[in-house]
C-alpha cells in the first residue's frame, strides 16, 4: 500500500512538469506584448524607453527556458507573479478565491452524494416502478441541463419571483445555497443514475441470491454488501465529476457573483490580466491531479482485490 502510494507520488512529477510547461506556454503564446499590456492596463504614458525598461524588468528579453525556470522557481517559492492590473502579488488573491470555490464545491458534492446515493439504491430496488420512472426522467433531464440554465432558473424562481435569496451573493451562507444547488443538481443526477446502474448490476450477482436464501435481511444485503461492491465505480464517477465541477463552477460563480476562482479567471480574462489566468489554471489543474491520486488510492482501500501495480 505505502509502496503504491509512493510510486504514484513519484509518477506525479512528470505530470506536474508537463502541466507547468503547458500553462507557461499558454502565456508565452499570448498575442500581444505583455509589457505593453501591463503598462496599458496601469494607465502609464507609454514611451519606447519605458517599454524597453519594462521588458527588461519582466525578463521578456530572456530565452524561453530561462523565463520558464524563473517562473517555476518563483511558484515553488510561493511567488505567482504580480497582477497586470493592480501590481499586487497574485497568490493572496488566488488563495482567498480558492477558499470560496472549495467551500462551494464541497457543499455541492456533499449534498449530491448524500441525496443521490440513497435515491440510486431506492430506484434500483424498486426498478420499473412508478417512482423509479419519475426519478429517472428527472435525473435524465438534470443530466442534460446546461449549468447556466439551472442557475438562471433558480435565480428567476428564488431571487426574482420569490424574494428568498439575494441575486448577488456576498459569499455568506445565504449566498451559498443557490450556487451550491445549481452545481449539485446535475451532479446528483449523474450519481443517482450511476448508483442505480451499479446496484442493479450487483443485484444480479449470485451472492445476493445466496444471501437471500440464507435469510439475511434485505437492508443488510443492500447497504453492507451490494453498495459496498458498487462503491468502486461510484467513486470513479464522483472523481470524474469533480473535473466537470471545476469547469461548471466558473459559469455558476460568474452568474451568482460568488467570489471564487471562477469569477477571478473570467474577470482576469476580461481585464487581460494573464498572469492571474495562468495562476488560476495552474492551481485548479494541480488540485485535479491530486484528486486523481486520492481516487486511485481510495480504490485499493475500498476494494482490496484491486491489483496495486
Amino acid at each position: 500500500m505505502l509502496k503504491y502510494v509512493i510510486k504514484r507520488i513519484i509518477n506525479l512529477i512528470p505530470v506536474l512538469i508537463v502541466l507547468t510547461l503547458l500553462v507557461f506556454l499558454l502565456m508565452y503564446l499570448t498575442p500581444g506584448d505583455p509589457a505593453l499590456l501591463k503598462l496599458a492596463s496601469q494607465g502609464a504614458n507609454i514611451t519606447d524607453e519605458l517599454l524597453q525598461m519594462e521588458r527588461e524588468a519582466m525578463g521578456l528579453n530572456d530565452p524561453f527556458f530561462v523565463r520558464y525556470f524563473d517562473w517555476v522557481f518563483g511558484i515553488l517559492h510561493g511567488d505567482f507573479g504580480t497582477s497586470y492590473i493592480d501590481g499586487n502579488p497574485i497568490l493572496p488573491k488566488l488563495m482567498t478565491a480558492l477558499g470560496y470555490t472549495i467551500k462551494l464545491a464541497a457543499a455541492s458534492t456533499i449534498v449530491s452524494v448524500v441525496v443521490a446515493i440513497p435515491i440510486g439504491v431506492f430506484t434500483a430496488v424498486k426498478k420499473d416502478s412508478i417512482p423509479d420512472n419519475i426519478i429517472r426522467i428527472f435525473t435524465f433531464i438534470g443530466n442534460a441541463m446546461p449549468n447556466f440554465l439551472i442557475s438562471l432558473l433558480l435565480m428567476y424562481l428564488f431571487c426574482i419571483k420569490v424574494n428568498l435569496f439575494p441575486v448577488i451573493s456576498k459569499g455568506d451562507f445565504k449566498g451559498l445555497i443557490l450556487p451550491a444547488a445549481a452545481l449539485a443538481i446535475p451532479m446528483a443526477s449523474k450519481f443517482a443514475r450511476q448508483t442505480r446502474a451499479d446496484v442493479l448490476a450487483q443485484l444480479d450477482e449470485e451472492y445476493v441470491i445466496g444471501m437471500h436464501a440464507r435469510g439475511v435481511k434485505e437492508r443488510v444485503i443492500l447497504y453492507r454488501n451490494v453498495l459496498h461492491n458498487a462503491l468502486g465505480s461510484i467513486v470513479t464517477v464522483i472523481s470524474l465529476q469533480i473535473r466537470t465541477l471545476l469547469g461548471g463552477s466558473v459559469v455558476i460563480e460568474t452568474i451568482f457573483r460568488w467570489p471564487g476562482v471562477g469569477s477571478l479567471i473570467i474577470d482576469s480574462i476580461n481585464g487581460r490580466d494573464y498572469p492571474t489566468v495562468q495562476g488560476v489554471v495552474l492551481i485548479l489543474a494541480t488540485i485535479q491531479v491530486l484528486i486523481n491520486l486520492l481516487t486511485d488510492i481510495s480504490y485499493c482501500i475500498i476494494d482490496k482485490r484491486i491489483e496495486l501495480e
Binding site: P14, V277, Q288, V289
Partner: peptide, 24 residues
C-alpha cells in the same frame, strides 16, 4: 499516451476557458 494521460487528468473546461480567453 503520457500526453493524453496528462490532458485527461486536467479540468477540461478550465483549460478551454483559459485557451479561449487568451486566444480571444
Amino acid at each position: 499516451m503520457r500526453i493524453t494521460d496528462i490532458l485527461l487528468s486536467l479540468p477540461q473546461m478550465v483549460l478551454a476557458i483559459a485557451v479561449a480567453g487568451i486566444l480571444g
